[in-house]
């Protein structure tokens, strides 16, 4: 079926069967490869994108359910000031190692700071729980969220 997606401020028409995960449309059709495939079962967060500003796992979000939503991916999240602050903090603290999970980490961190501008360590742990990092960069993710919060406060 042919449908229209609003993604990163642009409208795209795509051809995909109902039941196709948004992840694969973003990666394989639109060739936006910043959104990653890690598990396909909503248990790692590598595929996190924003749907109307809220983080969702795109591997478990079906294409027919997102036609009216504003979708934002890692490629555009830095256009917004929270996204830019998170990306700046990530660079300042060298959060990344292999980096494969980090698009998802950044998308979730932006989601957290959008609803809670000054999260405590416990609140960060709770919110970011579903974003796995096999390189175990968690310590810096926590510090990165707090640093981004400071940047936004300044």
């Amino acid at each position: 079926m042919s449908l229209t997606l609003k993604l990163n401020g642009q409208t795209h028409s795509v051809d995909a069967e109902p039941g196709t995960p948004l992840l694969w449309v973003i990666r394989d059709e639109l060739k936006l490869t910043g959104t990653k495939f890690g598990c396909g079962v909503a248990s790692c967060g590598a595929c996190t994108v924003h749907l109307n500003g809220e983080p969702v796992r795109s591997c478990q979000t079906y294409i027919e359910d997102v036609e009216d939503a504003e979708i934002t991916t890692i490629e555009a999240v830095g256009d917004d000031k929270i996204g830019a602050a998170v990306q700046q903090a990530w660079v300042e603290l060298d959060v990344v190692q292999c980096g494969y999970c980090q698009s998802g980490q950044v998308m979730s961190a932006v989601g957290l700071l959008s609803e809670n501008p000054k999260p405590s360590a416990e609140e960060i742990d709770e919110y970011m729980y579903g974003n796995a990092c096999r390189c175990a960069t968690y310590q810096r993710i926590r510090a990165g969220v707090q640093r981004a919060s400071e940047i936004l406060e300044a």
Partner: peptide
């Protein structure tokens, strides 16, 4: 600082999985 931080935080880093 690491030389690969920025591209890994903004989705530009290219892994083999991203080859099209």
């Amino acid at each position: 600082r690491r030389k690969d931080s920025a591209i890994k935080g903004n989705g530009q880093a290219m892994y083999a999985m991203d080859v099209h």
